[in-house]
Design a protein around this nucleic acid. Structure first.
Lengths: 233, 233
DNA sequence: ATCTCTTAATGAACACAATTCATCATTTCG
DNA sequence: CGAAATGATGAATTGTGTTCATTAAGAGAT
């Protein structure tokens, strides 16, 4: 019998259980330390496995990150349709989508950060599941816009892609600014403001034909006055 | 005399020249390979120095990246005010800012990428020079909005921060989508569309009861006229 | 010119983290 | 119960950023 260094007791779990353990540990460590500052050794320790074991279930560190984000994202979107289906009216539905996105970033800033910084920038992003999920997610917003157009409430001469970029770009830009200390975070009023801006724009709405209307009224009254002033009786 | 390995000829240059050489090399390598995939050895080789020498002028790899981006950003913003000062009118000035930003991203996608991905996400971003430059840069857009408000052209009940987030968020979101293959890139029409969307919003402007109201009033007066004209005789 | 003295550049050595793999423990199955 | 299959291990490897003792180049004095 060789007297080597003490070997840790080996536990054998089901594949699903091991994967779940590692992903849970990875999610926690990534949340706390980000991607680059999260050593595999930390993840292994928290998952009660040894570093090398992680590579039996995940190709590499990045793959682990991708799986973690996918898992979270998918779960988050699960009951989305249901919530949305209970809301009526273009404005309300749009507001919900914006509010929901703001809340998500507020609840999981670290994971959102990882997603935007490390997944979305990767060369292969457009071939990932996260890309598809995200597309599916933003498509709902565009569907709301389309319905608004079909109902004659919204302009039909805008590029839908740009509207999407404007809404989501605004939310994200706003959130990063908040995360580095600019202003406060109030999903309710922010959502209201964004919907209002997107729908109404910046320009002051001149009541068109305003002066014209006044003219016409004045002329009508004049006719009345003339009529009344005459020796009609 | 020791017969060690051949030692490379040592060139001594002015500090400015060395720094400039290293930064130029770093800029090129970063542009080609990104941040993480750009080894210091490549940068050193291209700058004709040895790896260790870089650390006489830069604290570490990140510091080098920061300096490179700063340098580029500063140069880019240099003749900005001058260009803008030649443009009149809220809409045109706003359009220029948007167009200019689109062009910048189009001309230097790699450096913009680095800036967004590695600088803006850093913990210390809000204490960097790039942060200040960027603030100063976006402030001009907000100044244009403020002038529009002062001139009575734009609504005064919007959060300026949100308008900024909407404009820049939209541009950036749009650009990343483009960079990963969605749609084309046409700074001119895109700038037009964004300005239009920001100023006018999505909602169809109902002439609010304009003609309708006038019609109804005129008819009422007509009835009065008829009434007054009849039993009078 | 020659001889210090200061300073810059060097590249070998270090440190640290991701990844691999030969080895051994555990389970499964005949 | 024994043998094969499978899974976990952790030591070794690799790659890369960073450090530092050593050495070369230039400046100034004699």
């Amino acid at each position: 019998m060789k007297n080597g260094p003490a070997r840790r007791q080996v536990f054998r779990l089901s594949r699903e259980r091991r994967v779940a353990d590692i992903m849970a540990a990875a999610r926690d460590v990534f949340r706390e330390k980000g991607y680059e500052d999260a050593p595999m050794s930390d993840i292994a320790e928290r998952a009660n496995v040894v570093e090398g074991s992680i590579y039996r279930y995940f190709e590499n560190k990045r793959d682990l990150l991708v799986k973690v984000i996918e898992d979270w994202y998918e779960a988050m979107l699960a009951d989305y349709d249901q919530q949305l289906s209970g809301i009526r009216g273009t404005r309300n539905r749009l507001r919900f989508m914006i509010w929901r996105h703001l809340m998500t970033i507020h609840e999981e800033p670290a994971l959102c950060d990882l997603m935007f910084q490390f997944l979305r920038t990767g060369r292969d992003y457009s071939h990932t599941t996260v890309y598809e999920l995200n597309k599916q997610y933003t498509r709902r917003t565009l569907d709301i816009i389309k319905e608004g157009i079909a109902a004659g409430e919204l302009r039909n001469d805008v590029t839908l892609r740009l509207v999407r970029d404007m809404i989501y770009g605004c939310i994200e830009h706003h959130t990063w600014a908040y995360l580095r200390g600019e202003g406060q975070f109030d999903p309710d009023t922010t959502a209201d403001s964004i919907v209002d801006l997107v729908l109404s724009g910046l320009q002051i709405r001149r009541t068109p034909q305003g002066p014209d209307l006044a003219d016409r009224l004045e002329k009508a009254v004049e006719r009345l006055e003339n009529l009344a002033g005459k020796p009609a009786l």
